[in-house]
Computed example of a mutant assay.
Amino acid sequence: MLLPFNARRIAVVAPHPDDEILGCGGTMARAAAAGAEVHVIVVTRGQPPLFDEEMVQQIRAETLRAHDMIGVTGTQFLDFPAAGLDQVKRSDLNLALSSALSRIEVDLLLIPFIGDIHLDHQIVFNAALVHARPRGSGGPSCVLAYETLSETNWLAPGVTPAFIPNMFVDIGATLERKIAAFQMFQSQVKPSPDERSIEAIRALAISRGATVYRHAAEAFVLVRQIH
């Protein structure tokens, strides 16, 4: 089985561009190669004065190149303010995200982890679960939370929610594509030993893989699964 329930329509919710590649780029590539539709919803956009417009446009172009390399079916940009979701009316965010997800009719929903240090990630986690509430037959059958280097392990595990994975996806065949996709984000790649270095991405994948006797894997926390 490729992914839960042989999902044919997968949606990845990314608080910021590149979160989706860091968190589940190998899984996305594996699903796309198997013929699944893989959609990405990027929730935020850098806005002045925190972010220069030229840099914002560069990152958007990098995002689309990375998604093309992975085999993403469609990318939606919601354009809420990056590092400012706590200032956004929650009902506005919930409605926009739910509308975007409803157009996809998602089988499998991949979202950031509630324990990430970035408040945008925590808010997006909650907004995604508002949409995923099982109130009808059209919601996602499975919801997984992914881990994001430089976000998931930088809060205070033991005091705040710890990422304790209970599902792993073998990405031995797609790890290099994940890395190549992240390299499209020239503005974001950092030198080792930074967590956003190529060496760190490969090391985490190998470590997660070894946990389940695979050459490389991505790890997830299962939020909900409906048979």
Rank of each mutant, 00 (worst) to 15 (best):
residue 5 F to D: 12
residue 6 N to E: 15
residue 6 N to T: 09
residue 7 A to T: 06
residue 8 R to T: 11
residue 8 R to K: 15
residue 9 R to C: 11
residue 9 R to S: 15
residue 10 I to D: 02
residue 12 V to H: 02
residue 14 A to L: 06
residue 14 A to K: 01
residue 15 P to F: 01
residue 16 H to E: 12
residue 18 D to P: 08
residue 19 D to F: 05
residue 19 D to I: 14
residue 20 E to M: 10
residue 20 E to V: 04
residue 21 I to N: 03
residue 22 L to C: 07
residue 23 G to W: 01
residue 26 G to E: 10
residue 27 T to P: 05
residue 27 T to A: 11
residue 27 T to E: 06
residue 27 T to M: 14
residue 27 T to N: 03
residue 28 M to W: 01
residue 28 M to Y: 00
residue 29 A to I: 04
residue 30 R to W: 03
residue 33 A to G: 09
residue 33 A to T: 09
residue 36 A to L: 13
residue 36 A to V: 13
residue 36 A to S: 15
residue 37 E to K: 08
residue 40 V to M: 10
residue 40 V to A: 04
residue 40 V to L: 14
residue 40 V to D: 03
residue 41 I to Y: 01
residue 41 I to D: 07
residue 45 R to L: 13
residue 45 R to I: 09
residue 46 G to I: 10
residue 48 P to M: 09
residue 48 P to A: 11
residue 48 P to N: 09
residue 52 D to M: 07
residue 54 E to F: 00
residue 54 E to V: 12
residue 55 M to I: 12
residue 57 Q to L: 14
residue 58 Q to C: 00
residue 59 I to S: 04
residue 60 R to D: 09
residue 64 L to Q: 10
residue 64 L to I: 11
residue 64 L to Y: 03
residue 65 R to F: 01
residue 66 A to W: 07
residue 66 A to H: 07
residue 66 A to D: 08
residue 67 H to A: 13
residue 70 I to L: 15
residue 70 I to M: 08
residue 71 G to T: 05
residue 73 T to N: 01
residue 75 T to Y: 00
residue 75 T to I: 15
residue 77 F to G: 06
residue 79 D to N: 14
residue 87 Q to C: 13
residue 88 V to G: 09
residue 88 V to D: 09
residue 89 K to W: 04
residue 90 R to P: 00
residue 91 S to E: 14
residue 91 S to W: 12
residue 93 L to N: 03
residue 94 N to I: 07
residue 94 N to S: 08
residue 96 A to K: 13
residue 96 A to W: 05
residue 97 L to I: 15
residue 98 S to I: 01
residue 98 S to K: 06
residue 98 S to H: 04
residue 99 S to T: 15
residue 100 A to S: 11
residue 101 L to Q: 06
residue 101 L to F: 03
residue 101 L to I: 13
residue 102 S to T: 15
residue 102 S to P: 00
residue 103 R to L: 14
residue 105 E to G: 09
residue 109 L to M: 12
residue 111 I to D: 03
residue 111 I to R: 03
residue 114 I to S: 00
residue 114 I to Q: 08
residue 114 I to K: 05
residue 115 G to R: 03
residue 117 I to V: 15
residue 121 H to K: 08
residue 123 I to A: 04
residue 126 N to I: 02
residue 127 A to N: 05
residue 128 A to P: 10
residue 129 L to Y: 01
residue 130 V to T: 14
residue 132 A to R: 04
residue 134 P to I: 11
residue 135 R to K: 09
residue 138 G to M: 10
residue 140 P to Y: 02
residue 140 P to F: 02
residue 141 S to D: 11
residue 142 C to G: 09
residue 142 C to I: 04
residue 143 V to K: 07
residue 145 A to R: 03
residue 145 A to V: 05
residue 146 Y to G: 06
residue 147 E to W: 02
residue 147 E to H: 08
residue 148 T to N: 09
residue 148 T to R: 02
residue 148 T to G: 04
